[in-house]
Write a protein that binds this DNA or RNA. Sequence first.
DNA 1: CTCATGGTTCGGCCGTCGCCGAAGCATTCG
DNA 2: CGAATGCTTCGGCGACGGCCGAACCATGAG
Lengths: 244, 244
Amino acid sequence: MTNIASNIASNIASANAIAQVAALMGDVARANMLAALMGGQALAAGELASHAGVSAQTASGHLARLLDAELIAVEKQGRHRYYRLASTQIADLLEALMAVAAAGPKRHRPPGPKDEALRLARTCYDHMAGRLGIALADALTRRDHIVLANGPGLVTEGGRAFLCDVGIDLAGASKRPLCRTCLDWSERRPHLAGHLGAALLGNALARGWVRRTTGSRALAITPAGHRGFTDMFGLPQDWARPSA
Amino acid sequence: MTNIASNIASNIASANAIAQVAALMGDVARANMLAALMGGQALAAGELASHAGVSAQTASGHLARLLDAELIAVEKQGRHRYYRLASTQIADLLEALMAVAAAGPKRHRPPGPKDEALRLARTCYDHMAGRLGIALADALTRRDHIVLANGPGLVTEGGRAFLCDVGIDLAGASKRPLCRTCLDWSERRPHLAGHLGAALLGNALARGWVRRTTGSRALAITPAGHRGFTDMFGLPQDWARPSA
DNA sequence: CTCATGGTTCGGCCGTCGCCGAAGCATTCG
DNA sequence: CGAATGCTTCGGCGACGGCCGAACCATGAG
């Protein structure tokens, strides 16, 4: 009896923690801020306020709470305060949440043309998601450049060499897992996250293969980028086409 | 201008959907119900009410909302109504949430001895999680019985034969992915979900290797189970020991 | 048919939380 | 040194939402 009671108590404690986190994400204004931060760039408090459509004071309160719960982190710079997601783990959680939100019954979600852009290619915190992200993960796996075993994932010798050719040096001592997967909300398949994912995005941006778009997480793929990805990474010809 | 405006609008719509789902999980009573359902068994409304520590009427309201959002599903049976999670996707989301909740600053979470039981072995909806779940995934991977490539994952020929020997027939036409991974909140590494994960749990229960515990998602590992897992699946000798 | 049980619906109470106006710090610039 | 900008704190208002008592359906048992 006391046994099951304490077991239930344990459940309650756990559920309490869950509820606290979920409640933070359960407010439209805060959800908007977090969604905006999924772009991967640190944003100033004012920008987040306008993203969320609330006044500066209100936003400040929200940010304080998110900060307190360690869902976001802050960097002061001059008279600005730049906020970013606290960890990739938070970004993963948000993606999982989007996956469920997208799957459920129509929750007042006009699936405009903008959605298609997001499905094609977007930033997911600090790496690429959408069909582009998935195609890259697939191609690298197919060529045995990476092995997505369970857990951290692995970059093979050949993969390391290949990436080095492309201009991505993985030698730097990185504490974070080199190569993780993150479930894609639009395609329901994993794409590459982790250090490698971030490096790939940085590389693509540097080459001018993709460009960030203002006000959205969608990535614009340049013609050079389309050729580059297809040729250099060996993506299938039709990787950009909507899947179903 | 209209461009960035509509982009922001798209973000808002998306954030709205996120917030709706998160808000549902953001209530302690509802979170408790969902946590209880993570055990994988369908529970009656009354049981959920007592799990959540609220009256029947209140619980009914909560269940209606969760049902409406398609986070849970219901099956009537006689004068009982059994509720279960609507999909494994929901279970995955809850695990991700727990991972963040467990990582964050101490949110009123007395980590009692019960926690240790959960970390060792527990049900995660319809499969096994905790160190046991992870050890199984690792062992099967090491022996090349499964390959956890990105996405659905694969069971090899040898794996299929091995599992058949164990008493798990994967021949049945299953529409759900045979073999998926689900991020473990306690160990931060993936364990086996999907059809295979469910089959493994069923098998272990049938063999009497693990037993469900009342009032908790913890799985009790019998002595026979400890031997069986170690010998038949080739887990490392110390798989049951706390990792860090 | 009547009663008991499990569940849902209704109505009203009350707390929490989001919101903004106004005021208060901090930093930078002229 | 002010003045301007970016952000936070404070205080009070208003609403949404969770809670329970009571009454109301539905199913099954005697």
